[in-house]
Computed example of a mutant assay.
Amino acid sequence: MRIIGAIACLCLTAACAESEPARSSTAPSSRVCPTLTVSLDADLRAHIDPILEAKAEEGFAGQVAVLDGDQIIYLGAAGHADLASEIPVTHETHFQVSSITKYLTAVLILKASEEGLIDLGDPAGTSIGDVEAIPQTYAQILAHTAGYASSYIAENYDDNALALSGILDANPEAASRAGEFRYSNDGYDLLGILVERIYRTSYEGAAQLEVLDPACVDAGFWGQVDHSDPTAFARALIEPPPALLRRNYGMLGASGLLISAQGLLQLQHAIESEAVLGATHGELIEPRAELSIGRATYGGFLVERPGLGRALSLRGYMDWGDNAYLMDYLECDLTLAIVTSRGPREDSGKSPFRDQLLEPIEAELAPFCESPA
């Protein structure tokens, strides 16, 4: 097991290269890549490295990264990206971050609103020319209050129109339940489908042009890579169902982002610095519904954390082992990313590694917070 450090300045990297856009972006040409400096804190490494080492002995394989302002103060990578324990996880290894993808989809919809392509208060059916089919607003779908459930029906389709019909057919009572909070993969799968209609390109292409390129984030998507190749992204503890390995609309807008921990930090930093969104970026942390864990937001949750105050909590978990956190501590100017592909298994009786790591790492971060809530 290795805990890997780094000393460099970075603009996270491959996505910064110019590419031929599928649709002309209205992003101001004056925007530049928001650069993060790596300045590792020795005391933090001395305390967090042993935590990762202990979890690696239990099977953890993943990354942890911490951002303080615009400085990365901790980077840790442990375990192996392959199942044969031959290829170590590095800081560049990508992981499936599952439902954190919903946050990216929310950013895309807000970007479309800023560009005048949609109005968040309009029926989402305007994107397909059929308001009766989707009378709920974009804002309702973003907030999980559009009445959609989680049938995962879109996993069966690699065709946009068929996936759209499948979701609508699987949710005949959605419009009548609008206003009620129902955490919904179907809703965000639907938004991923609508992103393609709005931007007139693939979901992946829109995400690259509108978000990842302006943020200078190196990332990929489910269906773009060889799932058996641990150099593409870390192998999961359990092989996903074979039918899901292809590109499909249940693994795009809701759960298909492949990215590193420091890539997540770069993405959130770019969003907060308005390199991706303008005035609407504050919409991402507005509370939308009261829940037992806190308040729902567009693509995440607002929670209170001991010693660190209010946090935007983005989280992902898949049955086959991938799980992740992106925690943005709003009063402390700290951001924490935890990613892993190794569960543990649901039948182990243990909580996901993201949860096992969160509290001890937060305890080490609390002294960096000058004014917790």
Rank of each mutant, 00 (worst) to 15 (best):
Y138F: 15
A146N: 01
A133Q: 13
L110V: 09
S85D: 15
I73N: 08
P242C: 00
I72D: 04
A270F: 02
I48L: 08
L258R: 08
D226L: 04
V107N: 02
S260T: 14
A219K: 04
C11T: 13
L209D: 15
L190R: 06
L67D: 07
D169M: 09
N171G: 11
R342Q: 15
I153V: 15
Q71H: 15
A42S: 13
F233R: 02
Y74W: 07
V32G: 12
Y298D: 05
L194T: 05
V32K: 13
A261E: 03
G187M: 03
A124S: 09
L314H: 04
S351K: 14
G79T: 12
Y249V: 09
Y138I: 00
L168M: 08
L44S: 08
L291H: 09
L326Q: 10
E155W: 09
E196P: 00
E346N: 13
L277T: 03
I193E: 02
E180N: 08
G223K: 06
E180R: 10
N248V: 10
N248M: 08
G5Q: 13
L83E: 13
G179N: 11
A27E: 07
G250L: 06
L265D: 04
A261G: 12
P214E: 02
T13L: 13
Q96G: 14
A174M: 03
P172N: 04
R345M: 10
L10K: 08
A234K: 11
L75R: 15
G179I: 12
A143R: 02
A84Q: 14
A149Q: 12
N248E: 07
G316V: 06
A207V: 09
H80E: 07
R354E: 08
C216T: 06
G294F: 03
G147M: 10
A296C: 01
A78S: 15
S165K: 14
A161E: 15
F221I: 01
A65S: 15
A178Q: 03
N171D: 08
G147K: 09
A22M: 06
L264W: 05
A65L: 07
T340D: 11
S29G: 00
T90W: 07
G220F: 04
T90Y: 05
L194F: 06
V66C: 05
T26Q: 14
A22E: 13
F368R: 04
H281E: 14
R247Q: 06
Q136T: 11
L314E: 04
A270M: 07
A154F: 05
E286H: 10
E290C: 00
G250M: 02
A175M: 00
Y199K: 07
N171C: 10
T280W: 00
A143I: 01
D229F: 06
V38Q: 11
A6F: 08
L75H: 11
T137M: 07
L117V: 00
L258G: 09
D130F: 09
I51Q: 13
Y103E: 10
A124Q: 06
G166Q: 08
G147W: 04
R45F: 00
L244P: 00
S176Y: 02
I118R: 01
L40M: 11
L209P: 00
E362T: 05
S151W: 00
S260I: 10
